[in-house]
Design a protein around this nucleic acid. Structure first.
Lengths: 212, 212
DNA sequence: AATGTGTACGACCGGTCGGTCTTATACCGT
DNA sequence: ACGGTATAAGACCGACCGGTCGTACACATT
């Protein structure tokens, strides 16, 4: 983007390509998505992509950044608009499950798909993914620690363990929703975290009602 | 195998190929593993593989069956040797985490890797994977239901939800151990399920001691 | 020793991949 | 109106994929 806010030449093309790449890659895989198919689905030629990115890897890195921005907008931001403590944790998890359930992206979780694809292949993409996962985990743990500090979770709570548990509900939702009943999967993911937080939080008014 | 128990001609080759395929595919992906590389790592020629399997897909299906057999031997069987109830559930989960932690296969969970790879590609492999996942989920739910019937879990327990939770701890372990600290991941996976079962089970002697 | 047989091999096929290069076209200042 | 420039297109390249085929070798039988 230019300093005056207008899109630089080619910026719109880049944005459109990245949006399409995120969507297509979340289903077929970031590496499994061939440049020919990506170009075709955008109505441009394959060589046109190389005008904006030097290599496929560079485009893949930009695609990851785009997916991160989307994740921040649709999942992180709603949580940050919610008061700190267990309510923020709950909002974060709900937004995540909403994201999966609404099928904003086809194929479940873009990051999980990509991580599985690049796990055995060292390189810049794998390194970038590791950063993203570490940042996500750190964010989740910070939210849990905040809730402990606020007294909304018992003192002495194993922060890393509880963050692991909350993340696990989300990971499992993204994974199981594709082969098993999606509705039941999302319900379990929501209900599990909610009842877990309700059981730990001494103030029952902070979280919405829900079946035990 | 022949009726007299001896290996039929080519049986040993087939077994060796499948063992190598499971191991290699769990890291690089069942589809990402090229027949050329598989043949090379076995010291045989690529065309030799086609003497035993008509196509790559047929070999992939056989590879999945092999992985299922390994899973049954190392994870299902130990559980079935344990008394029914929460102890059996706990053994199943421990054997699963042991399997991941011991790195019996490189690259985490063969089934998860493969599922991500074939999720967007309808076909016999995808269908077979769906069967495997459904069977696994059903098995886990049956174990939970058994524990409820035995009174080792509270009556009225949401069986599907608890099975989801236990599975989620395992899925998250396989996933997070590759990018985050593996030891902490496995500890969380073990500790989470153990403390969860201990909190639910009215008889504290059934499960091993553990930090809260 | 000669022969028949079956198995495994290297060479090869069409197709697709990421990436490059030459060419055509559309736009813009003079 | 014209010419210079930047952009995008399509043909093309080598590499690699799954899969096929003719052949040569190893072995058992006579």
């Amino acid at each position: 983007m230019n300093v005056d806010g207008r899109l630089a030449r080619g910026e719109r093309t880049r944005s459109a390509v990245l949006d399409a790449a995120v969507s297509l890659a979340s289903a077929s895989g970031l590496d499994g998505l061939s440049l020919g198919h990506l170009a075709e689905s955008l109505g441009v030629s394959k060589s046109g992509l190389f005008a904006h990115w030097r290599s496929k890897e560079e485009l893949q890195l930009a695609t990851i950044d785009r997916a991160v921005a989307q994740w921040q907008e649709l999942i992180i931001a709603p949580a940050l608009r919610t008061p700190r403590g267990v309510r923020r944790i709950h909002t974060l998890h709900e937004a995540r499950v909403d994201f999966y359930a609404a099928r904003v992206l086809p194929g479940g979780c873009f990051f999980a798909t990509t991580e599985f694809e690049f796990n055995a292949r060292p390189g810049a993409v794998r390194d970038r993914l590791a950063e993203v996962f570490a940042a996500w985990t750190g964010f989740l743990e910070r939210l849990v620690a905040e809730a402990v500090e606020l007294g909304e979770l018992p003192a002495g709570t194993d922060v890393a363990l509880l963050a692991y548990e909350i993340d696990a509900y989300g990971i499992a939702a993204a994974m199981r929703s594709r082969l098993l009943d999606p509705e039941a999967t999302y319900r379990h993911a929501r209900l599990g975290v909610l009842s877990r937080l309700r059981a730990l939080c001494p103030d029952p008014t902070l979280l919405p009602e829900g079946p035990s």
